[in-house]
Structure formats: structure tokens, C-alpha cells
Design a protein around this nucleic acid. Structure first.
Lengths: 82, 82
DNA sequence: GAGAAATGTAAAGTATAATTTACATTTCTA
DNA sequence: TAGAAATGTAAATTATACTTTACATTTCTC
């Protein structure tokens, strides 16, 4: 444990900021150049966007990327700790 | 222009921090759970890692993700500005 | 409460990040 | 300067982010 070799648990506050900005999923999708399905998947969590998209979302909301995406910890694999 | 709909131009300082830490590509790859080919590609630039990997690299070097990856601007597409 | 707008879900397809392998070139060290 | 370690490149494969489409459900607004 404590290694950075496996995926992190990432949380995001896209839903929160979208509520603050009072825009729809579709509007956010259009503004950041993705489809609504991508926004839905992101808000549902547990998925790992490209760095590029993460920055575009942060730029859109005019927040630091660390405010939008938060590292919650490592996903402990428990098993097969090679 | 000025839209966030297309990919950003991202620069990274992985090579710099790897030099500071005096580790090899292979060691960085092992520490962050990717292959050396991925590190090579990243250092060569022009490629867009997952947010997860970007955070793992930043955590490894103990720097903010914004110190490791810098948004240089938008990739102006010029053509077909739909 | 009816219609519309917004959101949730899901499956199949496309684009590309990341892997694997192999070998060639450069840089370190004895 | 010979051998080893580190780096560069490239091609084929695998994993997964992201798209596209379609439809179902929920939440607004008249």
C-alpha cells in the first residue's frame, strides 16, 4: 500500500459546479466539446477522464483542477500485491 | 477561438522533475505503474495522459499537478470552425 | 395533469491511451 | 575502449475514454 502503481480513487464536483452555474448537462457538454453521455458518465463518478478534458472542465468553471477533481486515495487492490 | 471545445496544448515537466529526482524512465514507470514506453511518450510530449496517471505522477514528485502539466493554450483548429 | 425539457441508462462503435516486444543508439562506468 | 545501463523509436495488440443512438424516467412549466 501507499504505492502509486494502481489507479487512484478520484472524486469530482462537476455536478456541484454545474448546479452553481445553472447549466444543463447538454450545455456543459457543448461548451467543453464532449457529448452529454460523457458528462453523465463523469457525474456518475468512477471514471477517469483525459487530463485534457479535466483541464477544459476546470477552465470552463474557472476553478483550479484540484477543486474540480479530488484524489480520495488509492484503490486498494488487496489481492495479488505483486 | 477562445472556446474550450477542442483539445488544449499541454506541456509537461516530467523530464525536468525526473532529472531533479535523478531516476531513470524505468524507475519512474515502475513507481507510477506504467511501462517505460508511456514515460517516453509523455516526455516526447503531444500526448494526453489520463487524469489518474497525471495525478499519480504529480503525487510521486510531490508537486501540484499544475506544476507538472501546464496548459499552453488551445490548439487552434483554424479550419472548419463549426 | 399534459407537454416539454432535462436527466438516467444501455449497447455498439470509434479513437486513442497504454502495453508489449524488439532492436538501435546514446551515455555512463569500470 | 569495451561492456552495461539508459534512452529513442517503431509496430502490433489491448484496454478504455468517448461517441452515437435510442428510449425510458424524472423534473420543470404552462
Amino acid at each position: 500500500m501507499g504505492s502509486l502503481r494502481s489507479k487512484l480513487v478520484l472524486e469530482n464536483r462537476i455536478h456541484v459546479f454545474r448546479a452553481i452555474h445553472k447549466i444543463t448537462q447538454q450545455q456543459l457538454a457543448d461548451a467543453t466539446g464532449v457529448t452529454r453521455a460523457t458528462i453523465v458518465a463523469l457525474e456518475k463518478g468512477n471514471y477517469n477522464p483525459s487530463l485534457d478534458l479535466a483541464f477544459r472542465l476546470a477552465l470552463y468553471f474557472q476553478v483550479d483542477i484540484n477543486e474540480l477533481f479530488i484524489v480520495k486515495g488509492e484503490r486498494d487492490e488487496h489481492l495479488h500485491e505483486n
